[in-house]
Simulated assay, not measured.
Amino acid sequence: MVILLIIGSLSGSIPVVFFSALVLTVSVLSSVYLRAVQNKVTWRYEKYFESTSIDECFDVFIELKNESFFPIFNFTIDIESRNEKELLFIGNDNRTEAENTMYSFSLDLPPKSQKTIKVKMKGTSRGHHQWSSLNLLLTDPLKLQSKRLEYQKEILPVFKVIPKIQKLKDLKLKSLLQGFKNTNHSIFLDETGIVGTKEYENESFRHIHWLATAKENKLLAKKY
Rank of each mutant, 00 (worst) to 15 (best):
L220P: 01
P110R: 11
V23A: 15
K122N: 07
F49N: 05
E216T: 06
L211S: 14
G127P: 02
S113V: 07
E56N: 07
I54C: 12
L5S: 12
L138Y: 00
K115Q: 14
L109F: 02
V37P: 02
L134C: 14
Y45D: 01
L4S: 12
N182W: 05
I72F: 02
E154K: 13
K120D: 02
P157S: 11
N135T: 04
D59P: 03
L87D: 05
K223M: 09
N135S: 10
K118A: 10
E201Q: 15
A21H: 05
R35L: 07
W43M: 07
N92D: 15
F49C: 07
V26F: 14
L5F: 15
T124I: 08
L138N: 04
S27P: 00
S81H: 06
R44G: 09
L189E: 14
K181V: 09
V26R: 05
F105H: 15
I208W: 02
Q166C: 02
S9E: 00
L176Y: 10
V195K: 11
T124G: 05
I54L: 12
S204P: 00
K160E: 12
T76A: 13
I3W: 04
N202K: 10
N94H: 12
T139S: 12
R44V: 01
V161Y: 08
I79V: 13
K215W: 08
E154M: 06
T139H: 01
K118E: 10
L109M: 04
E50D: 13
E97K: 15
S113Y: 04
Q130W: 00
S51E: 14
G12T: 07
D140S: 06
R95F: 10
F205I: 12
K122W: 01
V119D: 14
K153V: 07
I3G: 03
K218N: 04
S27T: 06
S30W: 09
E150G: 06
D78N: 11
I117Y: 08
P163A: 13
D55F: 12
K147D: 04
T76H: 10
E67G: 03
G127C: 01
L134R: 08
Q130E: 03
L134I: 12
K164Y: 11
G123V: 07
K164T: 13
K218Y: 01
Q114E: 14
T101S: 12
F73V: 05
I90A: 02
R206H: 06
A36H: 10
N217E: 13
S11W: 12
S133Y: 02
K215L: 13
S133F: 03
F180I: 03
Q152S: 13
E86A: 04
N217A: 11
T183G: 08
R126P: 02
